[in-house]
Structures are given as structure tokens and as C-alpha cells.
């Protein structure tokens, strides 16, 4: 029975739709008839990236970033500072350069990108439900005064967002790719940017 279901699923999916690195492509949702339902399903897929440690760690609740795949508080302890770039005397750039740098004495690497900073406090995702993240993303009061097109641009084009798929040794990349992610976000917007229900 299970085998049959899988075969059916494969048959039902269009030939171009292929899950990339754990993230479904937008095409894979074409089978969902109701646009609203499809939009919600697309957003649920978007959440696989948004709720990945690569993204959540720098969209923290409060003033302290998290780090690692297990999302521990950042060590050394750092704070967001006035402009999300750290505190005077210890800004993000004190340690984080323009690129990931492999450690020379042991395993792992320190992540880097130009610029490197926290998401503003209003864009905190840690501890929020999918519905809450969705509402926040669409709220110009909290999303940095972005319309949906600007949201798409941030997700699809921003270099620091893109770092999530190239995080360096010792960190799991976000699922999919920035391209697939961008297409999912676009498809979500094109289908009405519906949000999941519930809190």
C-alpha cells in the first residue's frame, strides 16, 4: 500500500518538479487546486528554511544571537547593539569577516559575510509559530517597511540570506537553495500570500 502511494506520488508530480536538498520546488505544489490552500502549503515549505537554525540563529528573540545547529546562545556572549551590528568594542566584525574562515588548529570554521549582523528585533522568529511568522513577514510595521515584492527580493537576492546555503564547515546548510527558496516565496506571494491558521 505504501509502495503504491509512493508510485502514485511520483506519477502525480510534474517532470520538472524535483525536491532539492530537502526543499520542494514551487512546481511540486501545482497539484493543489485551491489557490489559498496552495499558498498555505507553499508557505509551510518556506518555513522549512525560515525555521532552520541558519536563519533562526540571527533572527533571535531578544538581543542575543544563537549559534550552531543546536541553537545554543552565542559564545562569546554578544549583544545586538544599537544598529544590530554588535556593541561598541565588540561588533560582529570583531570576529566575522567577509567570508567563512576555516579554523587552523581544529575542525570547523567561523562564518563570515559582508555585512554580518542580526535581524532587527521586530523580525524575531525564535519562539513564533508559522502563522505568527507569516503575519510578521507581511506587516510593514515589523518587516522593515517592505512590501511583498521587497520581501521576495530579500529572500531571493540578499547575500546574507544566501549565506544560509553556504555556511562553512561545521554547520548544516539550510534546505534547498536560495533559488528554489526564492521561487517558493514568489509562488506564495503570487497565490495570495496566505498564512497558516492557528497561533
Amino acid at each position: 500500500m505504501r509502495k503504491l502511494a509512493m508510485i502514485l506520488a511520483v506519477v502525480a508530480a510534474p517532470a520538472t518538479a524535483e525536491t532539492v536538498n530537502g526543499l520542494k520546488t514551487a512546481d511540486e505544489f501545482d497539484g493543489i487546486e485551491a489557490e489559498d490552500e496552495r499558498s498555505v502549503a507553499l508557505f509551510e515549505e518556506v518555513l522549512k528554511v525560515v525555521e532552520h537554525p541558519r536563519c533562526l540563529n540571527c533572527h533571535p528573540k531578544g538581543d542575543t544571537p544563537l549559534q550552531g545547529d543546536d541553537m545554543q546562545p552565542h559564545q562569546p556572549p554578544v549583544v545586538r547593539g544599537a544598529n544590530n551590528f554588535g556593541a561598541p568594542g565588540m561588533q560582529c566584525t570583531t570576529c566575522h569577516g567577509a567570508e567563512n574562515v576555516a579554523f587552523t588548529t581544529g575542525e570547523g570554521s567561523i562564518p563570515g559575510h559582508e555585512p554580518w549582523h542580526l535581524a532587527p528585533k521586530s523580525m524575531a522568529w525564535v519562539g513564533l509559530s508559522g502563522a505568527e511568522i507569516c503575519a510578521q513577514l507581511k506587516d510593514p510595521e515589523r518587516n522593515g517597511d517592505r512590501d511583498l515584492a521587497a520581501i521576495h527580493e530579500h529572500m531571493a537576492e540578499d547575500g546574507l540570506v544566501g549565506w544560509g546555503w553556504h555556511p562553512g564547515e561545521g554547520r548544516e546548510p539550510a534546505p534547498g537553495s536560495q533559488e528554489v527558496f526564492g521561487e517558493l516565496v514568489k509562488a506564495w506571494i503570487d497565490t495570495g500570500a496566505a498564512c497558516p491558521t492557528g497561533s
Partner: peptide, 24 residues
């Protein structure tokens, strides 16, 4: 430490503090 955890290697680069152990 070699991994930007201890700060013993701090120098100024372009006027700002920088951990030299992780700065190629």
C-alpha cells in the same frame, strides 16, 4: 585559542578591533 573565543589575538584593523587568529 585559534577560534575567536578568547580575544588574546585582538589587533586593530582599519581602526576597529579584530581577532587576528581568524583573519586571513
Amino acid at each position: 585559542c585559534g577560534i575567536a573565543q578568547c580575544g588574546a589575538c585582538t589587533v586593530m584593523v582599519d581602526g576597529m578591533p579584530r581577532r587576528s587568529c581568524v583573519t586571513p
